[in-house]
Structure formats: structure tokens, C-alpha cells
Simulated scan of single mutants.
Amino acid sequence: MRRPSNSTTASLTVIVVVLAGTLLTYAFRTDRQLNALDVVLPIIAFAGILARQRYPVAALIVVALAVAAYYPRAGLDGPLIVLTFVALFTAADRGHLTAAIATGATLLLAMGLGESGRVRHVDDSMFVAIAGWVVAAIAFGGVTSNRRAYLLEAERRAIDAEHTKEEEARRRESEERLRIARELHDVLGHNISMINVQAAAALHGLKKRPEDAETALRTIKETSKETLRELRTTLGVLRQVDEDAPTAPADSLARVEALVAASGLEVRTELSGPLDAVPTEVDLAAARIIKEALTNVSRHSGTNTATLTVSNTSGNILIRVEDDGPGTTYEGGSGFGVQGMRERATALGGTLEAGPRPEGGFRVVARLPLNKAP
């Protein structure tokens, strides 16, 4: 069985109280002559009270008219005026403050005009008390309405803040996944590519030039060792466990020669401007871009020569990697190398352009601003 709402229960309670008061008045006021309005008008007012939550303004008007007609025309002066206070409170509580004020003022004005004649039904003190109850009912309804609106707004803001917090957490998680993906691609992609190139060189020169094969195998050993070290470091960060800090220096513009030597290419390097006081984020991004660009030359250009230019001018680190190779047949791969380089540059407020050169070969040009590093 469905239970009645709190407002319905309150309305029924008020009706019972007023009805009981009316019956007590009838029991003790035997000098009054009853008429049909003593029954009809209370019933109309009771119906308005029952409908006050769904139709607050209409209920207020119905109750006000019924009460206004009850006292001068009905024979019994019951406590029907209490219903007016309830209807005024409900209208103000539901946000219809203007209607409540207008109705209350009209009732008081009508009451004052009605009591201005020779015959008076209430004295001055009673009139002031009734006026005070009218004002109190309207004021209390306005206060409860404002409090409910404040609580709803606070709840909405709390929900919005929770959604914003969740969205921020998802965004940071996505950015962290992207950063880890770039790191793994740059580290593993470069080193495994070098292992592949050196292994091919070792197989090719194993019989004809054993000394070159030995050098290639040593390079494979060192590169695989470095790959495992960096992979363990990355996995340690992901697992959030305490591990020994890496002993090898991080990639940096100060180690351009080491980056070039690790590529296994013949690279003509041109450096200009101060490269030893670069912000850490720009320094690491520049080194990663150089490593990835040289890796792409090794894997896709079809040549073992390249040109690397790094300069620090006009508040920017400019990187240019070019080759004049014919290009090789695509043999599969993720295709995330250029995308990862471009994302690194964009994250620092810079740009990266990569594409074929008109005269042949491939070119990568990156611009990393120094003053916009996060």
C-alpha cells in the first residue's frame, strides 16, 4: 500500500485540527444560527488545502475567497482562517512569493475596510495579531524556499565538481598512457631497430669480414643491455616499486655524439648556440626527437648517411634531420614514430614537420620554444 506524502499528511492534519475547532465552536456557541455556507465554504477551503502542493497559487485564491466569504456570511465563526495562513506559506514556499504577498495584502485590506464600520467583529489587538500571522506565514515560506534553492544549488555544484574531478582524472590518465607509449616507442623502437640493423650487418659480414661481425655483435649486446635496463626502469615506475636509479645518463643534447654513435649511421653533425642550459623538458624532447629521426633514417631511408643540425637561436631549439636515401619498402610497423615526435613538440608549444624532400630523401624539422616549456 502506498503511503501518503508528507505534504498530504500535513494537509490532512491541518484539516482535522480546523474541523475539530469548528465543531467545538458549534458545541459552545449555541446562540449562532447555522446556514448552508457553514458547510459549503469549509469544504471548498479543505479542497484547496489538499491541492496546495500541486496548484499553490490556485489553492491560495480558492482558500482566500472561501475564508473571506465565510466570516461575514456564515453563521458560525470557526477557526477557518488558519487555512489561509497555510495556503500563504505554501505559495511562498513553492516560489510564488509575489502572489502570496498580493493575496495577503488584499485580505488584510478587505478585512480593514470591513471592520471600519460601526459594527466590528475583531478589536485592534486581534487585527494586529492576524496581520502578524499573515506576514509570518509569507516570510517563513520565503525562507524555506530560499533554503531549498540553496541546498539544490549546493548539490548541483557538488555533482558538477565530482564530474569535473572524474574528467580531470580520466584526462590525466589518458595523458600518462600517451606519455608512457611515447617513452616505450622511443626507447624500445630505437634500440630494437639498432639490434635489427646490426644483426643484419653481422650476418652479411660473418664470412667475408669477421671483424665487422664481431663489432656488430658487441653493439647488439650493448644495445640489448641498455634496452633491458630502460625497460626495467619504465616497468618499475608503472609498478611503483623502489628500484635502483638508472646509472646511465639520460638522453640529452649534451650527448648528441652518443646518440649519433648509437644510431649506427654516418651522420654529419652541425651544432650551434648554447645547448647546455636547456630546460629539462625541452632537452629530453629534443634528444628523443633526434633519436627517433635517426632511427627512421636507419629503418626506412635505404641509406646509412644523414645530416643533423641542432641550433639554439631566437629562444628556440631547432632540429633538422635529413637524408638523401631512396627509401625502402614498408615491411610493417606501428607508424607512431612521426606522431610521437610531433606530440612531443606540440606538448612544449612547438612544431614538427616531416616529409619527403623535393630533391629526394626525407626531412624532419622540429622547433621547440624554450620559454614555453611546462
Rank of each mutant, 00 (worst) to 15 (best):
R209L: 10
A200N: 15
E211Q: 03
I220L: 10
N191L: 01
L217C: 06
S224D: 06
P210I: 00
M194L: 06
A200I: 05
I180Y: 14
S193Y: 02
E183W: 08
K225E: 05
L231Q: 00
E222D: 13
D186S: 15
E183C: 10
G189Y: 01
H190F: 04
L184R: 07
K221S: 11
P210D: 04
R232K: 08
T219P: 00
K207Y: 08
T219N: 12
A200H: 10
K221I: 08
I180E: 14
D212H: 02
A181I: 04
A181M: 09
E183Q: 13
D186Q: 12
R182T: 12
I192H: 04
N191R: 03
R232Q: 05
L184H: 10
N196F: 03
H204N: 11
T219A: 12
A201I: 14
T223G: 10
L178D: 14
I192N: 01
K207I: 05
I180T: 15
E230M: 04
R179I: 07
R182C: 01
N191E: 01
L178E: 15
L217Q: 05
M194F: 03
L231K: 00
A200T: 14
T215Q: 06
S193P: 08
S193E: 09
N196G: 05
V197A: 12
A213R: 02
A202T: 09
I220D: 13
A200V: 09
A216D: 07
T227E: 02
A202F: 02
K221L: 09
N191K: 01
A201Y: 02
G189F: 05
T227G: 04
L228H: 06
L184D: 13
T215K: 04
V187W: 09
D186Y: 06
K221W: 08
E214N: 01
R209N: 14
E230G: 01
N196Y: 10
L231D: 01
A181V: 03
L178A: 14
A202C: 09
V187R: 08
A201N: 15
L188F: 14
L184N: 14
A201D: 14
L188H: 09
L203S: 15
I180A: 15
A213G: 13
A216C: 05
T215F: 00
H190C: 08
S193W: 02
I220C: 15
R209F: 06
H190L: 07
M194I: 09
T223V: 12
H185K: 06
I195V: 13
A216N: 08
L188M: 12
D186I: 04
T223R: 08
A200S: 06
T219H: 07
L178N: 15
K225W: 00
K207H: 11
K225N: 01
E222S: 12
N196S: 09
L217A: 11
A216R: 02
A199S: 15
I220T: 13
L231C: 01
E222A: 12
E222L: 03
K225M: 07
K207S: 11
H190K: 06
E211I: 03
G205F: 13
Q198C: 07
A202E: 11
V197L: 10
T227N: 06
D212N: 02
I195E: 08
G205D: 15
I192K: 05
K207V: 10
A181L: 13
L231M: 03
R179K: 11
E222V: 06
L228W: 01
L188I: 13
